[in-house]
Design a protein around this nucleic acid. Structure first.
Lengths: 342, 342
DNA sequence: TTGTAAGCGTTATCAT
DNA sequence: ATGATAACGCTTACAA
């Protein structure tokens, strides 16, 4: 059994309350008493019991991180989650919070509220959310019940959910502008599902860039995958035809994985990126540097986004936030590489 | 404030103890009482407070997962951790355990023991451990204090730590055998740091394969990187020379990242894999399929390893283990792809 | 500056 | 089959 305050108190000749005070560094206390307690604690190897603290404080000290359960995942980039998670970890660590990992099984009902009501977590960060009724309902419930949470890389229109997002419209606009500026005339767009706000943002950026260049938007040049490499690969035939016919001379893909899949598919059809067609991906994933020719892409500050989400949440926990915090979009950076160069 | 047993008890006209019994499904009880309680709970929206349960049970219900803190990580494969983590998640979820993520900062002293003594976790899984004195000491302390833990993909010789590992010696042996069988005569080995047992296992497998083929082991054909792509890239010059001189006609790399780095470095020197030299990596990472030519590699069941580690631990928690569980090595699978084919 | 004692919301033992 | 009640180990008024 563990050593408790009691023995420390007895050994130091003080009350249990005093031991607590010393360990919480609260209230005034004689330096001598302090040292006596600390020494006694050291002697018996006492450390406060976190469970008891949590119960007494009514705080678990845990931040829940909800992320899609993706065994054998190749849907999302693992890079994406690793970076965000590390960012969250850094901020949480620094504030003495722990991270409770929660895999959101596709099957089970999204009842995030339960995590709060059972006091397992004090706040949570939701990754990989989609704008579907089920998810919206779950988040609205959280908000209604006053539980602090923050979304990363996903906004829900018409709500006031706390969110950390990057400026995907700007990133996409730049990517497409680059393609046009380098002489491409007809840029196809391989987007992801519209349930992700980031997909919608990218579409907006794509359209903006076209408009700014006086190029008409043509719906038949917009293709949709699911962000997996396979889904990019599968569009190769269709898009390849357009390239052959000269109808398309560049593709902007909503992420690197799809871009890479597409690139591989087109290659099998004998169509190489660069001269033949310009290609830009999105995420600056490891793969984009590995593939040959190297993939032009857009860098997203995932790590920063995770860190920021945790910091916002923690700030609110400490009540430092007066209601609204500004909801700015983090800047992205376009990276020109070989696939978009002649 | 949260609703507690009290109100439920009052509303159902029973004692608080009875409410607990119903929720824990313990002891005999009249079906009618049961329903009355459940209904009352439903009515006021009662859910048991996890913190109170944990304190009373002296169990946090958390499994700690310790992993290296790797911001902007490109040292370890994120694929590696994602897979293992998902596997752990599946097993833990199924048993009602939560995952507490703990980033091991390179700087701070490894005091895993504290996590147990404060009762934050009931058991833990250590990822990415290295066989260095500091780490050994921390783990030995855990064992001495009787805290259950399990290592994944890393063994410590001379200890009886619970471990889940894959048969890297066999995997490496097969990889090298394949290279030799396909006509290569002089296989260099680009290994990772010896603090990882998996590096040492691979070396053993490499040597076994050579011996079995009657080829002498030559230390000067063994190179060491740190598992990063960069470290593979940096060996290109040295290894390239050997290839040019005909001293080396194949390379077995201890992971895909180094293999890919090396491959890129050699390419810049005008040396292409396949005909010129055979190359085999290790991990079957995404990159191995993305790169061109595709990288022959060895598949490791990371997901399974994570799942197994959690299951072993949970079995012990439930005292189902009679001391020793068998410590078998999970099988790996060699995948021949383009870089090792003529 | 320190002690006393009332929670915190359960679990689990012992009666009844 | 159910009720009382003592832990669990801490935080935090309130008293002294």
């Amino acid at each position: 059994m563990a050593i408790s305050r009691k023995e420390v108190a007895r050994l130091a000749g003080v009350s249990e309350a005093t031991v607590s005070r010393v360990f919480n560094n609260v209230g005034p206390m004689k330096e001598e008493t302090r040292e006596r307690v600390l020494q006694a604690a050291e002697q018996v190897g006492y450390v406060p019991n976190a469970l008891a603290q949590q119960l007494a404080r009514k705080k678990s000290g845990n931040i829940g991180v909800i992320l899609p359960f993706v065994p054998k995942v190749h849907l999302f980039s693992t890079y994406y989650f690793s970076e965000i998670l590390s960012g969250i970890g850094e901020a949480a660590n620094r504030s003495g919070y722990n991270l409770l990992l929660i895999f959101r099984e596709p099957s089970d009902a999204k009842d995030y509220s339960m995590l709060f009501r059972t006091q397992k977590i004090d706040a949570c960060i939701v990754l990989g959310a989609r704008d579907v009724p089920e998810e919206r309902a779950a988040l609205e419930q959280l908000q209604a019940e006053g539980h602090p949470f923050c979304l990363v890389n996903q906004r829900f229109d018409g709500t006031s959910f706390m969110t950390v997002d990057a400026d995907h419209a700007a990133g996409s606009r730049e990517a497409v502008r680059h393609l046009i500026a380098s002489g491409r005339r007809s840029v196809a767009f391989l987007n992801g599902p519209a349930e992700y706000s980031s997909s919608r943002d990218r579409l907006a950026g794509y359209r903006t860039a076209l408009r700014e260049s006086g190029i008409g938007y043509r719906e038949e040049l917009v293709f949709v995958g699911n962000y997996s490499r396979k889904s990019g690969y599968e569009q190769a035939e269709l898009i390849g035809e357009r390239i052959r016919s000269g109808e398309v001379d560049a593709v902007f893909a909503a992420n690197d994985r799809m871009a890479i899949g597409l690139m591989q598919g087109l290659k099998e059809l004998g169509i190489e990126p660069g001269e033949r067609y310009g290609l830009v991906g999105y995420d600056n994933s490891d793969g984009s540097r590995i593939i040959s020719p190297t993939l032009s892409t857009v860098e997203v500050p995932f790590y920063e986004m995770g860190r920021l989400a945790a910091e916002k949440l923690l700030k609110e926990e400490r009540k430092e936030a007066d209601g609204q915090q500004e909801d700015s979009l983090l800047p992205i950076r376009f990276l020109a590489r070989e696939t978009s160069t002649f």
